[in-house]
Design a binder for these strands. Structure first.
Length: 262
DNA sequence: ATGGCTTTCTACGAAAGA
């Protein structure tokens, strides 16, 4: 079973790329972030035409997450618990049943950017992270194969940036942000890409500006975190870097895992 | 970076992204 995550930076602008990607990669589950549209405006028929069930959690202009799955999604949860006043569409979760009667739980996550630091935006990032960790703690007690994937907006380590010094003072590389990610993974979650490679130069985002992609000035901020039951079945993880070289791309590329689950 | 792109909106510049 293949599970992918991709921040598309507007689903309407990326429909052609989405079709090209799913036809070549054929993920069973695809988590999307930054739809930038309301549920009514999501190009549902086009995506269903690619062979997917579609569940969205959108909002106007900003944020928005979706899960596309070959099998229908059940036990759907829209939004992260812990703050009823939070109206930003950044979390969507569901369960897919497999042929052999197992279940796989998946969440599509768009963690706040948090810039600039020292403002309410950064506080929101950290408190959102706390809510995610609290929720993940509950999910892990289910002892299921679980994939918490998406755009975490955190560079975990210096080797996850081509130019780490350039990110000093940025919310994506602040010690507090990195510590929150460590607290989350310390619950027993495995960073799928890092479980497959400890090398440098593995990036999932390149800025649109200053020829960042041409200079390979990237960062790794899109992650798939696996519960022990999912990590035990991890076959491969891959970053689809070539997608960033397509015409009018998203600034993020898809990241995918292959799990030994039918 | 005094942000060099890209996207969005009751748009014609500003805000947000990372």
């Amino acid at each position: 079973m293949r599970i992918a995550t991709w921040n598309v930076n507007s689903i309407k602008q990326r429909l052609e790329h989405l079709a090209t990607f799913v036809r070549s990669a054929e993920p069973d589950v695809l988590c999307l972030q930054e739809l930038k549209c309301m549920d009514e405006a999501f190009p549902r028929a086009e995506v269903e035409g690619l062979g997917y069930n579609v569940v969205t959690h959108g909002q106007k202009a900003y944020n928005g997450v979706a899960i596309l799955s070959k099998k229908p999604l059940e036990e759907i949860r829209r939004g992260l618990p812990g703050d009823e006043t939070d109206e930003q569409a950044r979390y969507l979760e569901g369960v897919v049943s497999t042929d052999d009667g197992r279940v796989l739980r998946v969440a599509s996550i768009y963690l706040p950017n948090g810039n600039p630091i020292g403002t309410p935006k950064f506080d929101y990032k950290l408190s959102w992270f706390d809510r995610l960790t609290r929720h993940a703690e509950g999910l892990l007690t289910l002892e299921e194969p679980l994939v918490l994937c998406g755009d975490y907006n955190v560079i975990p380590e210096p080797k996850d940036a081509a130019n780490p010094d350039g990110w000093t003072g940025d919310a994506l590389f602040q010690p507090e942000s990195r510590a929150k990610l460590r607290t989350l993974t310390s619950l027993g979650l495995t960073d799928a890409v890092r479980a497959c490679s400890d090398g440098e130069g593995l990036y999932t985002f390149w800025d649109y500006q200053a020829g960042a992609f041409q200079r390979n000035n990237g960062i790794r901020i899109d992650h798939l975190l696996l519960s022990p039951q999912a990590a035990d079945r991890l076959r491969t993880a891959s970053i689809r870097k070539e997608v960033r070289g397509w015409d009018k791309p998203s600034d993020h590329v898809p990241v995918m895992v292959d799990l030994d689950i039918d």
